[in-house]
Design a binder for these strands. Sequence first.
DNA 1: TTTACTGTACCGGCTGGACGGTCTTGTCAA
DNA 2: TTGACAAGACCGTCCAGCCGGTACAGTAAA
Lengths: 177, 177
Amino acid sequence: MRVPRANSREKILAAAADVAREAGPGSLSLEAVASRAGVSKGGLLYNFPTKAKLMQGLVESYLSDFQKALEARATEAGHESVLSAYIKLSADDCERPKPSASWMFSAIAEDPDFLTPIKAFKRQLFERLKGETDDLGSLLVCFLAIEGMRSMNLFDSDVLSEDERKLLVSSLLKIAG
Amino acid sequence: MRVPRANSREKILAAAADVAREAGPGSLSLEAVASRAGVSKGGLLYNFPTKAKLMQGLVESYLSDFQKALEARATEAGHESVLSAYIKLSADDCERPKPSASWMFSAIAEDPDFLTPIKAFKRQLFERLKGETDDLGSLLVCFLAIEGMRSMNLFDSDVLSEDERKLLVSSLLKIAG
DNA sequence: TTTACTGTACCGGCTGGACGGTCTTGTCAA
DNA sequence: TTGACAAGACCGTCCAGCCGGTACAGTAAA
């Protein structure tokens, strides 16, 4: 793929995420994204010929970022399990001020099928974790608790306090062994 | 409040949930809801003067149903804790073929603030559970795992198999004590 | 009993506006 | 000069909300 005059693609993807977060998932119009990215509507549609392609781009970049981050954590400290890496990575993600995936609601509103790759990725990750442990019950609890944490973060629910989340993470790490 | 000729309100709320589930959260138009409910658009707008009021109605009826179901479970078998009741209730909810809250994405797309009452409800429930146990860590893990289960159900992720979910629930009940 | 009036419940066409996507024109680097 | 790319006016579509109308139940005066 040729590189654009300026790498508009990433700017646009970031802008889309920002708009979804700040203006609400229902207000993710192409015009808003273009304006936010400092690009004209025509320019946006040049990079992403359709809104669906834009959503798809968001999903793909999210997934590849996540994959890379997980791999980095899992290998950098070779002693810890993938599950521990996943727990810590998710905890860090949730501590960041901006929920990284608030665009997801826009994607769902557009077409729920956009999430199919994410579901597949999750199932794949789960299978990988299953091969790493012999206590399926504990794994399930951990995996779902992380899912819950991520979901709360996504919904912008400040239901848990800072301390509670820290306690949760340490409890999960203990269960993960 | 006078009772309507037929209780259209509930019919409309149910229809809205159905449309959101089947046509996708982005296709929740007033016309679609009215048609599904066997009511004209004018009739719908008579009962819910604005789309926002309809969403609000969905949230309120969801919350009151949930509250009632939880109370019923918690008192019917007085021996079990509220946490156990919550776990079992959520497990049953997730086993039902139709996700009961798929309208939530429509509400979020419309305006994320619609979820405020739900967040408040969750926090309130969590506080209540905190008063029931002395092991905050375990409670956190359970609470978040349930959240994860509900979220997966909401996203229609069949990431977990039937057996896995059963194992998860039994593990949670064991942790809950 | 009849007739006229009132308020409730509901109908469905209409409109103004927003949005997605196209098309033509402009621009700049090579 | 050329072609990759940006700009933004433009068009068709869709939808929320409005509004004038209809049907009907209750009431009450005649």
